[in-house]
Write a protein that binds this DNA or RNA. Structure first.
Lengths: 221, 221
DNA sequence: ATTTATTTTTAGTCTTATCTAAATTATATT
DNA sequence: AATATAATTTAGATAAGACTAAAAATAAAT
């Protein structure tokens, strides 16, 4: 009855790459994201399609079915709640939690994850600013945009990251940028699209387009 | 490098059945404890022997090597710490935690389990009174004996159970017996070895030999 | 000391999930 | 439109871990 960890991982990654089921995902993209060979992915796609988790159009890609999305959301919920537990209760740093949560997300017990949810106070966002699905699989909405897409003069609050790699997260720590920080775009270079920003604490700094691309903010004005 | 969950389960069960490596375990006993067929167990014994976790004498049984014992103790440590976390932090009942801990014990992260240990205040015993190995694999000692082995007149404190089944644990709840309770043996029946005991709260009750056999106490006098 | 019963092992099969290499389909380029 | 390139799928192999059925070893009972 229960799904294997492998099946859960595929569904989770498909869900993330498809923006929660909105778009279709190609075999190679999936293979790259899962660090597996395309042939292995094709194999699994057949199995997942048989079990009605996805719709697979050969040579074209896959999309999640309602059932597949529902299952994937529960795994993402578990992953994000465990990440938050690890940082807020056990004081892990935000770049250390991913690998452990990858394991914990497969623990099979609705009761357990609901109690963790309660223990944490029914949080809406994980340590990287990603929204946590509730027990019904519903996502809280937040209209955040990439910092790179904002013009000079705008202010905003840092709400999340798109790149979850330890390297990127550590780079932000180095720059002194944290989730929840307010910042203002002073200017934008025409030369390399780098940004001069001012943190609410007063500190001014330059960040590259790459860094700005992966930083999510909610525009204030 | 890491061991599979299956390997970890075998080592854990061997360790428990062998009284932490002291005695040898037979194929059939292991098969029964793991709810598997004897043939499957033999297969795995060869693999574990190859990897120097156990010594296997065909047709005779297996014993843990030092390495095998060390590995098993870490799994038992994780199991017991997670059981305590589930009861003390998430308020699960003591008969509900086993299945979940069976899964959590396989999470691979020394740092994680050490932080849980610290979070719980470096506890020495789990919710069933079983000793928790420390990070080096050392077990706290406690000289407890089965209540059934004590004579009338003796007093003691309930320290643990030998039967971990939900049925037994619920039966104790029904009787009103908890870990840490003090009790005194009023009399012992020659007819069926049942015991009349008095709890420190004042309540008197009769318990069968079976129940007494599975209840561990430290004799006070 | 044979025979019977029990325990354990061997041999061969199955499933899941991965891989490599080859074949096929789709896309891009002249 | 033909061909080259890239993406995807098929076919066949492998490893882990479980199973059944049969063979072998040990233990028990006459």
């Amino acid at each position: 009855m229960a799904n294997t960890q492998s099946v859960e991982n595929y569904l989770k990654v498909i869900c993330n790459l498809s923006e929660f089921g909105k778009t279709s995902v190609t075999t190679n993209k999936l293979a790259a994201a899962m660090e597996m060979k395309a042939a292995s992915v094709t194999d699994m796609m057949k199995k997942l399609a048989n079990r009605k988790f996805i719709k697979h159009i050969p040579y074209k890609g896959v999309t999640l079915t309602e059932q597949g999305k529902k299952t994937a959301m529960q795994i993402i919920r578990k992953h994000r709640l465990w990440e938050l537990f690890l940082t807020s209760t056990l004081h892990f740093k935000w770049d250390e939690v991913h690998n452990i949560a990858e394991q914990m997300e497969h623990i099979e017990s609705d009761e357990l994850i609901n109690r963790i949810d309660k223990f944490l106070g029914y949080p809406k966002y994980d340590p990287h600013g990603d929204p946590i699905p509730d027990s019904k699989g519903r996502l809280p909405l937040r209209n955040s945009t990439s910092l790179a897409s904002c013009e000079a003069g705008y202010s905003g609050t840092v709400t999340g990251v798109q790149d979850h790699s330890a390297a990127y997260l550590n780079h932000l720590v180095l720059l002194g940028i944290q989730l929840g920080d307010n910042l203002k775009i002073i200017s934008k270079s025409d030369y390399d699209k780098s940004l001069k920003i001012k943190l609410s604490k007063g500190k001014e700094l330059f960040i590259t387009q790459d860094v700005a691309n992966n930083l999510m903010i909610t525009k204030i004005k």
